[in-house]
Simulated assay, not measured.
Amino acid sequence: MTRSRRLLVLAVAVLLLGGLAAALVLRAAARAEQTHEGDPTVAQGPVTLGRQDRLAFLNGAQGPHRGALVSVPGQSPQAERTASGLACRRFHAAGGTGVCLKSTPGALAQDNRALIVDSDLRTLRSFPLAGTPSRARVSPSGHFAAWTVFVSGESYGAAFFSTRTAIVDTRTGAMEPDLEKFSIQLDGRPYTSGDVNFWGVTFSKDDDTFYATLATAGQTYLVKGSVSGRSVTTLAQNVECPSLSPDETRVAYKKRVARGASLWREHVLDLGTLRETPLAEKRSVDDQAVWLDDRTLAYALPAEGRADTTDLWTVPADGTGAPRMLAPAASSPTRLG
Rank of each mutant, 00 (worst) to 15 (best):
M1K: 11
R6H: 06
V9K: 11
V12E: 07
A13S: 06
G18I: 08
L20R: 09
L24N: 08
A28V: 05
A30G: 01
R31T: 00
E33W: 14
Q34W: 11
T35H: 11
E37I: 06
Q44M: 15
P46R: 11
R54E: 12
L55G: 10
L55K: 06
N59M: 03
P64N: 04
H65Q: 15
V72Y: 03
P73N: 07
G74P: 02
Q75H: 11
L86Y: 06
A94G: 02
T97K: 05
G98I: 11
P105C: 07
I116D: 03
D120T: 13
L121K: 00
L121S: 02
S126H: 00
L129C: 01
S134W: 13
V138Y: 00
G142W: 07
E154H: 13
E154S: 14
F160T: 15
T172H: 06
L179S: 09
F182W: 15
Q185S: 14
L186I: 09
G194T: 01
V196L: 04
G200R: 03
V201E: 13
T202F: 13
D206R: 12
A212M: 02
T220D: 05
L222N: 14
L222R: 14
K224Y: 02
S226M: 07
V227D: 00
R230T: 10
N238L: 03
V239Q: 09
S243F: 05
L244R: 10
P246A: 07
A258D: 05
A258F: 07
R259A: 15
R259K: 13
G260T: 10
L269M: 15
G272A: 13
T273P: 01
T273K: 09
R275Q: 13
E276Q: 13
T277P: 14
L279R: 03
Q288I: 05
W291T: 01
L301C: 01
E304N: 06
R306C: 06
T310S: 04
L312W: 07
V315D: 06
D318S: 01
A322S: 13
P323C: 12
P323I: 13
R324Y: 10
P333W: 04
T334E: 10
